[in-house]
Amino acid sequence: MIDSTTTARASWRAADLGARREISLPQGRMAVFESGTGRPIVFVHGLLVNANLWRGVVPRLAGEFHCVTLDMPFGSHTLSMPGADLTPPGMAELVCTAIEALELGPVVLVGNDSGGALCQLVATSRPDLVQRLVLTSCDAYENMPPLLVRAIRLTARIPGGLGLLMSALRLPWVRNSPIAFGALSIRPIEPRAAESYVLPAGIARDIRDDLRRALFGQHRRHTLGAAAHFAEFDRPVLIAWSGRDPIFPMAHALRLATDFPHARLEVIPEARGFSPEDEPVRLATAIAEFAAASRSAHVR
């Protein structure tokens, strides 16, 4: 039996994310967090993290922008979505329906990790919803899923393997190791946030089932399919790529900055894949400057 304290630790979200709301979508219920007013910025995280990934970025932007952080069904969420399509196209549609349900209009869309891949799909399939696009280190081109996720998928194929993995990740020395979050963050992640990442799929079978479907839905055909349409996206794009990233190669950042017609690259130097964890101030500054630029301005 799971005690109430463990459940509370799994559902903890930083107060800096703002007010929590639950929205009803065709795919199921989703938790979102809102803070600030102004031009809307929507933040999309990836696998095995949740809205807490952006807890250091949002408070630095909420004074000028309307920050909306989604709690995506990537295995660290608390509202399961049984039966929902959790392939990348299905998840991208979930982002679109959330933007529409919240009546946000065209937004500045910010993605990290596998959430960045979803943002690529949204930008190329529903450009009417995206005013500007920010891609931090993320799956792109042939790198979906990256090697670390492929290893997790192998574990998930073993009966009971995913549950055992999530139990192991509750140990700080395991989750901070180079085969887990240590590959994605230079510094150990704040314990409360790290626990909120690993506990939900460890204690709830329905969340674990969502994670399994999200894992096995990933394939490079989705990112390559989006890439085929980058040249058609005529809005400004910021590629804010981590400088010390072993998972997401800098070659892909350079390729993205070339393939999008109005893009520029900014390196976040002292960060691995989770730049919102490693360098939230530097990342927030880059996003603020980019989002505040004239709506008609293009970047290169």
Rank of each mutant, 00 (worst) to 15 (best):
V149T: 14
V149L: 06
R150Q: 15
R150C: 04
A151W: 03
A151I: 11
A151N: 07
I152P: 05
I152M: 12
R153N: 14
L154Q: 12
T155M: 01
T155S: 04
T155Q: 04
T155L: 02
A156Y: 11
A156V: 12
A156E: 09
I158P: 04
I158K: 02
P159G: 04
P159D: 04
P159V: 06
P159I: 01
G160H: 09
G160E: 06
G160S: 12
G161M: 12
G161R: 08
L162I: 11
G163N: 14
G163P: 06
G163Q: 13
M166K: 06
M166D: 05
M166W: 03
S167P: 00
S167E: 14
A168Q: 07
A168E: 11
A168I: 11
L169E: 08
R170I: 11
R170D: 15
P172Q: 02
P172W: 02
P172I: 10
V174G: 05
V174F: 08
R175A: 03
R175S: 02
N176V: 01
I179A: 08
I179S: 13
I179D: 03
A180F: 01
G182R: 03
G182I: 01
G182V: 01
L184C: 12
L184V: 11
S185F: 00
I186K: 09
R187L: 01
R187T: 04
P188N: 07
P188W: 13
E190L: 13
E190P: 15
E190A: 15
E190F: 02
P191V: 09
P191M: 07
R192H: 13
A193C: 03
A194P: 08
A194K: 01
A194Q: 02
E195T: 10
E195Y: 09
E195R: 13
E195S: 11
E195M: 08
S196H: 10
Y197M: 08
V198W: 00
V198G: 01
V198C: 00
L199M: 09
L199T: 10
P200T: 13
P200C: 09
A201H: 05
A201L: 15
G202I: 09
G202P: 00
G202R: 09
I203M: 07
I203F: 03
I203T: 13
I203R: 13
A204C: 13
R205H: 09
R205S: 15
R205W: 00
R205C: 04
R205A: 14
D206M: 12
I207K: 15
I207Y: 06
R208C: 05
D209F: 02
D210K: 04
R212K: 08
R212D: 15
R212V: 07
A214S: 15
F216L: 06
F216R: 08
G217R: 00
H219L: 00
R220Y: 10
R220M: 07
R220T: 13
R220W: 08
H222V: 06
H222R: 07
H222K: 08
T223S: 10
T223I: 03
T223F: 00
T223V: 07
L224W: 05
G225Y: 06
A226C: 01
A226G: 04
A226K: 04
A227R: 15
A227V: 12
A228M: 03
A228Y: 01
H229K: 15
H229G: 05
F230R: 02
F230Q: 03
F230P: 10
A231P: 06
A231K: 02
E232L: 14
F233A: 04
D234V: 06
D234M: 06
